[in-house]
Nucleic acid binder design. Structure first.
Lengths: 183, 183
DNA sequence: CTCACATGAGATATGGTTGTCTCATGTCTA
DNA sequence: TAGACATGAGACAACCATATCTCATGTGAG
């Protein structure tokens, strides 16, 4: 019945992506179960958040897999990665801020792994001469997270059309604001 | 004695920039006053946050002033703006996440004003042919906030040298990850 | 000096969330 | 049918932060 707890987790992720401050009760309702049952699955809020973090790592890892970041040009790989990540942007944004709020280093293992994979993509782009070498891969990775989260907030604010979000993130991240010089 | 309440507000901003979840008691201590006195200045946490929001608008507005965004090339103006904004990045990041958490529209007036000023800068850059026209100014403004906040978090994580932060934000925002094609 | 006023420290009450428990109900299987 | 098991609903205490109040202290102005 591990499937059930994953369903609960998914529902929690979906809710918290929209309402980061939701209570355990709200999470339970959103998952279609009672608070008691939720507590049987996850000992407390900490346990829930930790499990959500692990889920986030898994989701993101799947995105990196699906994007096949090792294939083709690095810029195309980044494009594919962002496209893959957008559907989970809200959830990622939740974990992103949660990570800032609590400065502990738990579950660093998983995140470091994903971070390394994405950083590796940017590093490859630099080695192949496609990306600028003066921007650290770790910073580009952070920027990717930040822009994805920001675009999701813009979408939720109604200031950005959902269908435009991937392109706007990609174009800014890869190309920046400056027009390409004709030189 | 409005100066005093501003000092308290500044101290609160400084603390919350580093510790977003700080309690009223911690804020009071950080400001060098007691909880009771803090409560005399600001009726409650909501009032404090609201006042902090107003302070943030003021600070950011001063940054836009100091950057003289109307003068020189738009890209140089963006550079100056980011340089100006970096010292208050932590405070801005706090308000940035706070703004996501509570979805109300209070004090929108002030923010809209600042947003418009910054958006105007990007729009000018587009009209002068320096910036790419396909990225909405509002999105570039959001991205600026997001990248500034992200860089501050990286600095606090010890993953980025404080002195590098402005350059990394500027270079990514303006130039993106892609190397300039020699074509 | 004395009064007015601001402050600090502490006590208290309140609200909201959490963690834990019990009990009744539903469901599935032998 | 009987038993095992999971769940829902609710009660309950505990905790945390907040909000409010009182009282003693200190300081500055008159």
């Amino acid at each position: 019945m591990s499937t059930k707890s994953e369903q609960v987790l998914a529902a929690a992720a979906e809710l918290l992506a929209r309402k980061p401050g939701a209570s355990m009760d709200e999470v339970a309702r959103a998952a279609g179960i009672s608070r008691a049952t939720l507590h049987r699955y996850f000992a407390g809020r900490d346990a829930l958040v930790t499990a959500l973090g692990a889920l986030g790592v898994r989701r993101l890892d799947e995105c990196v897999d699906a994007a096949a970041v090792g294939e083709g040009s690095a810029s195309d790989a980044v494009r594919r990665l962002v496209e893959q990540v957008m559907p989970v942007a809200g959830f990622l944004a939740f974990l992103y801020t949660e990570h800032q709020l609590f400065e502990q280093d738990r579950m660093d293992d998983g995140w470091r792994r994903v971070d390394d994979r994405i950083s590796g993509l940017f590093r490859r782009g630099q080695q192949e001469g496609e990306f600028r070498p003066e921007l650290p891969p770790a910073w580009l990775t952070e920027a990717l997270y930040a822009l994805v989260a920001a675009s999701d907030w813009s979408v939720q604010d109604g200031q950005m059309a959902p269908k435009d979000a991937p392109t706007l993130v990609i174009e800014l991240l890869l190309g920046g604001a400056l027009a390409r010089k004709p030189a």
